[in-house]
Write a protein that binds this DNA or RNA. Structure first.
Lengths: 116, 116, 116, 116
DNA sequence: GTGGTCTAGACCACT
DNA sequence: GTGGTCTAGACCACC
């Protein structure tokens, strides 16, 4: 996996996993790879993948069964929420930024259509 | 000026100045405040404001007259470019992110309209 | 390391490292000493060695792995280019200066041979 | 006159004048423009042109007749010396730099011929 | 007065 | 441990 140097690796990995969940590549209750396997798979430090799971657990995106491994949350609501949160964040940041540049909503719509 | 703790102060200041240029508050050839004055004005360390000017100089957004001060670039093209660059970056990041979340261009347009 | 007072320390250090790369003392992908170690080694402030690495990164001479350290670029082309760039710059500056003094290419060749 | 930001303006002006002397555009005993005229002519600060004359006086390149102005030194030897000094400096810097890059005198000669 | 550089020391996030 | 950022304060050359 390619990493962008300007944002922490563990954040990038979390976002990647969130996207996989949203897109259905990972489903509620699925078992995640072990931290060591994840590390090997992504070419990152095991400490980093451990952090990924820790942060995701904090966000109730996954949970750990002692001695068994880490699993995606079984709460479908939680999963649906992630999508909304991530979209909401993107949208707000975008709109705020464009307004600061002096563009209005209609401009934004036109830009997006022009990139279609 | 209020700073967001998650992004370096000097970056935030640069973006603020870029926006002022875009919005016409600062014009080609205008003299910028001295590093010391900018520092006082924003409540930051003079080294930090010096860094702002140096990074901006590297981007050809301003230039320095030895012993006299720092001035906004006189290249109108460069200024026009800033707006495009900043907008382009925002747009691309937004579209890319939304697509990764499984949304299409029509969804994006709807979201933006709904925030109007 | 001895420093010439008339040119910034960080520039002198960068040039030293570039020369080491050119002469093969440092190779593509090699790990550089940490900023703190470099500082200790050269008797300079850690901020100054950090600046060295940051400027070099800007020139694509090295790259940073977050939390791990700084490495020489792995692009052999870039390395080959450094030598050419540095030599080119020296040569052009020399020739331009000598011509301004009213010397021609043959004079220059003679001067150089006389210093052999 | 165009100035290179990396070297003090007064040094650049001095070098320009030295070159004019060497090339015979200025001759022993010639009257130099007043500091104010020089400043206007070059688009620099009068303090800067004053410094130019002060430094040149220190180098015995010119002298001041109180109330009359500044004149190029009448010592032909001094003038001949300037040329040698400037050439010598260029040559030594060039050779030193090229050797540090791992080139030998023959390489240098070839480079110069190739730029002919 | 201006910006440029450097030191010293601190805190932080990341691996 | 690594680099990144920031503060504080100093000195300097230049205009």
């Amino acid at each position: 996996m390619e990493f962008d140097n300007s944002v922490p690796i563990y954040v990038q990995v979390i976002n990647k996993i969130k996207r996989d969940i949203i897109l259905g590549k990972l489903k509620a209750g699925d078992k995640m790879p072990s931290t060591r396997d994840l590390a090997k798979e992504l070419g990152i430090n095991p400490n980093t993948s451990a952090r990924v799971y820790k942060e995701m657990e904090r966000e109730n995106l996954c949970y750990t069964k002692r001695g068994l491994g880490t699993y995606i949350t079984e709460s479908e609501e939680r999963i649906e929420l992630i999508r909304k949160e991530m979209a909401e964040e993107l949208i707000n940041k975008f709109i705020k930024g464009m307004i600061q540049l002096g563009f209005n909503h209609e401009d934004m719509v036109n830009f997006i259509r022009s990139k279609q």
